[in-house]
Design a protein around this nucleic acid. Sequence first.
RNA 1: GCGCCCGUAGCUCAGCGGAUAGAGCAGGGGACUUCUAAUCCCAAGGCCGCAGGUUCGAAUCCUGCCGGGCGCACCA
Length: 576
Amino acid sequence: MDLEKLLADRLAPAFAAVAGGPVDPTVRRSACADYQSDAALALARRIGRPPREIAAEVLDRAALGDLCAAEVSGPGFINLTVADAALGVAVAELAGDPRLGVPRVADPQTVVVDYSAPNVAKEMHVGHLRSTVIGDATARLLDWRGHRVVRANHLGDWGTPFGMLIEHLLDLPEAEGADELSVGDLDSFYRAARAKFDADEDFRDRSRRRVVSLQAGDERTMRLWRLLVRRSESYFLEVYRRLDVTLTERDFQGESRYQPLLAGVVEELGRLGLLRDSDGAACVFPPGSVGRDGEPLPLIVRKRDGGYGYPATDLAALRHRTGELGATRLLYVVGLPQRRHFEMVFAVAGAAGWLPGAARPEHVGFGSVLGADGRMLRSRAGAPVKLADLLDEAVSRATELARDKNPELAPEEVAEVGRAVGIGAVKYADLSTDRNRDYVFDWDRMLSLDGNTAPYLQYAYARIRSLFRRAGVAGADGVAAGPAAVPLADPAERALVLALLGFAPVVTEVERTLEFHQLAGHLHRVATAFSAFYERCPVLRAEGPVRDGRLLLCGLTARVLRQGLDVLGIRTPERM
RNA sequence: GCGCCCGUAGCUCAGCGGAUAGAGCAGGGGACUUCUAAUCCCAAGGCCGCAGGUUCGAAUCCUGCCGGGCGCACCA
């Protein structure tokens, strides 16, 4: 039962009667009561009556029954305090719902989530962290809601650098080359190739010729290219596994797969009359984009040299996603600096008719990860921080903490907790702030057990699990066969119930906005409400209906935390 | 020059037209013979970058400034 909606439904007829037409009662959570309605204030001008008078009349007419107490407050707010009995029933119903009040969508969309997108033969670094983490949370959330989700890992697996990479691979004894690639030291492989390219004229020539063979589909070249791609992919999959990211080998949809389509894309744009030649390059000039010189900015779909850049690839991919996959929501989880690029791509796609009907492309942008100095996070040497190193450090710091704080954990448990907490902390730090902003990467803060952090939420979950182990009863695993109503005596119980009832509205909101910090913030509120409840309200020492009710609250809290964190891609260890 | 993002407590961040702007950290004071103290409770801390405007009501919307970050033709 959606309490907000229930309250709104009770108030709506009264508002309609007073206003002489339909009114949204705008019920929301309140600091001054459980819920409040602001609609009387907005209505005052429309019908020319004082807001308090409107609110009073609405309350006279509203059939609130024994659902809640209501009063007019301040300039015309209607404060709603839900009856304990109604809350107790609502929370018991929620506990009986395997989906925690969040139904599967009635009208599933096909959603393509384009995220992660590392480059073959290059190390994944912090720059890939946000796209991977935010994108994966997006895919998980939409999956859970029942949409058809296509994960698209738009791998950088094509382009001129592959000439030099393949030549470098040829220069090495094959075994050594393969070895170097598989140990995960992709950067030194790339750097060595690059260094040779910069220093050696002959190598440069060979590299350029190699690009030509690659584009021509030369068999031996393709074999080596596939070797590079496959080695890199297995390395990326290892990183995803450690990061608890759901991307698999089936989700690699690299740039190379669109190469055969690019000529057709350009040809079609030409047929539609959208193309203009500019200095020999085939361009589309979407309205509204202006460059440094004040002149219209082109989207270059074919370069002067006849090659294709990533605008062409993005257009081909988009056309494929709407045309072949039937996607109606196209999400691009890519950093904010690419904002204009996507504006232009979407504008061109729209003009070309590749966004039929309900198809909506959306750039899910995000800010940068900063170091303590407020600049882009870099290693001490000034290089981008390798994602693998970052994860190592997260796990080792968290393992250290776990060993330190809970000596009762067995060694294998320490290792498992360290992984869950370390990785969870990194992901949560990323997901718990507004993705549009840059955020400061700070180990101590993200691993703190206080505040809006993964370990705090995980700890709340672990405490509940511990409690159930001690009680020797099931409960936190799934739907509990609990009481039909939960008796609520303590304010901490009420606060917890209200927080738990707020889970569903937040999930549906985040499905729309993809602002995961809203979900994170809500889970934090649930966890703080639980911690306060846990301090004040004995569970196992209580008796009868009170004990049963509290066990139900604990079980439901655990399920909400676990489900919410699962959507964020974060584990909930049984012990900490 | 143009465009995008961002300026809220000492620090890191919430606050999506509504009441007295909220958390956490740091600093101050308390609570462990007790279901995990990795926790909880209390107090303190604010010209919401500045100036106008719209509104019954603005941190929130609009305009202009100031400050920071990023981006602006053939790299992806």
